[in-house]
Design a protein around this nucleic acid. Sequence first.
DNA 1: CCTACTGGACCAACGACAGTA
DNA 2: GTACTGTCGTTGGTCCAGTAG
Lengths: 344, 344
Amino acid sequence: MQKAKLTTINDVAARAGVSYQTVSRVINQHPSVSKQALERVQEAIQALKYQPSNAARHLAKQQSAMIGVISYGTLHYGPAQTLASLEREAHELSYTLSNVNVTDLSFAQISAAIQTLRRQRVDGLIIFAPLIDIEHTDLESICADLPVVFTATEPQPKRAVTAIDQFTGARLGAQHLLQLGHQHIALLNGPLDWYDALLRQQGWLSALQRAGITPAADLESDWTAAGGYQQISALLESGTPFTGLLVANDQMALGALRALHQHNYKLPEDVSIVGFDDIPESAFLEPPLTTIHQDFAALAHQSLLQLKACMEHPNLKQHLRVLIPELIIRSSTTTPKQPFRGKK
Amino acid sequence: MQKAKLTTINDVAARAGVSYQTVSRVINQHPSVSKQALERVQEAIQALKYQPSNAARHLAKQQSAMIGVISYGTLHYGPAQTLASLEREAHELSYTLSNVNVTDLSFAQISAAIQTLRRQRVDGLIIFAPLIDIEHTDLESICADLPVVFTATEPQPKRAVTAIDQFTGARLGAQHLLQLGHQHIALLNGPLDWYDALLRQQGWLSALQRAGITPAADLESDWTAAGGYQQISALLESGTPFTGLLVANDQMALGALRALHQHNYKLPEDVSIVGFDDIPESAFLEPPLTTIHQDFAALAHQSLLQLKACMEHPNLKQHLRVLIPELIIRSSTTTPKQPFRGKK
DNA sequence: CCTACTGGACCAACGACAGTA
DNA sequence: GTACTGTCGTTGGTCCAGTAG
């Protein structure tokens, strides 16, 4: 395959009748270029449609202007949303994003992803995946001397971490149900290898315990509507009594809604449901879903801010930055029909 | 900021006691390396955690092993799904994906995106965005001598294009409603600057015309549940009679469902709805949605296959490759209550 | 004349320094 | 001395001779 020769800095220099250094100066907006030379070079760049090679430039400058991202589950709403925001913001800071999506959370995959990104000489790294099974020491050994921001994972010693406070989010949801007078509250959670899921479980449990109430059920599913449908169908058929349900994302809530409708439950009278994420569709479900809103764009923004700080001041002590989610009340929650011992 | 010096091929060579050329051979799996040297080099690579620099390698080899993608609307299900598949597949072929997301379809944005990718010296380009307002000649002038595959856009002369046949998809949906005996069929479409939306409109219209039926309504919205809700609410309030509704994606169908429920329509008895995309949630809506399934993973696969062909045989004549979508019948469609002149 | 290895040129840019006016 | 401009050395690799066994 014969590649057509691309135009280089030398071609531009030849056409403009200057040395290629002058062209380099123009590209990098160095002040010491005469107006005359500037114009001629710019004309030549236009005419030849010259684009400087990032590879060469980065080799010489020893930095790539690339940010690496390790992502997980990007087909789910939250990760997809965050990633998209990340890309937009990185672009605005004239960084290029290089995304590697891992399909499981094994050390093998994570470390392979980091190696891929190291070969690309990314200037910084955002690990947007829970690292539940990975030892800190192992991680440190592959991330060493690389500015890293962690997201959606447990606090890392000496490392920057950004997160939406899932514990508080789940607590808000549970408290809302408690305040309405619910006594039998179940949780339908996502897979517990997501750190976010773990925290939601703890937040829910904490709220219930503080109210002196025992959990009605603690279920785990796979974030999908199908999984939610299946779990709630099973719960209903088991005869376990519950009037309140906290669901760890809106897709599963949608499945739960379907299961309840199929069993002829009236909503929200028979069962109150609180979702999680506030996907754009949640206001249009039957009934419109009360849910916990998460600001994924803000999460992306914070992550990038922290990464910038890490890159510019490598020795600065980094800390945990936490965003607080918000309860959005719609129509899927109400007071239970028969409060055993409620406010009303 | 003092960058820690990264280990290079020379460091490895020094440690292994060979020339740096030999190290290069090991990395590239060149056969002419003695077993002894091989082992020593591999040991050194391990010990120093050496990762070859892609930038340097690509500069020397004159190819980047990168594929550029220009994407549009990646927060929507279809594009997101396709992009994720693309990334996975590219990774398997050991290509790196570089994605630039455009927020509108202006020539300015598209050409800026292409320039960004040219600077990265991508080996090939997948344009995954409709190019409705862009002249072929303009496009050719920026894409010249670059292997390109187009997706979700109109056929390009002499260029490779992959697509899911939206015309057929919409026709399938409309025909399904016609076969059930519907006489008043409306369309709720996405924005017409998406080429896919345009084709769906044509497919729907074609099916209706062939059956000698005039469209009940031809609405346009923004792919969101909110938009669908708003449009169908307005339609209902306008008093326009219709018993069948084809919706150009499932999110808008969800909004339509909500509007119909709110107006106390019984589904599917009063109105039959066909969606588009077959999102994972569509089986769990009320009622479970009949919809047109699209295989986005296959689309990504085909696109990459064609791009590979373009890159390997630049002079090969390229053609259009079309995938056929599939009607998935669930419970949101049935025979109309009062068929004016139907089969039954 | 292979097989294994080495030195030099080269890729496309940047940075330091020297040279010119 | 100041305002430009050009030469040379570097970056981290690959590729193409050439060379010794």
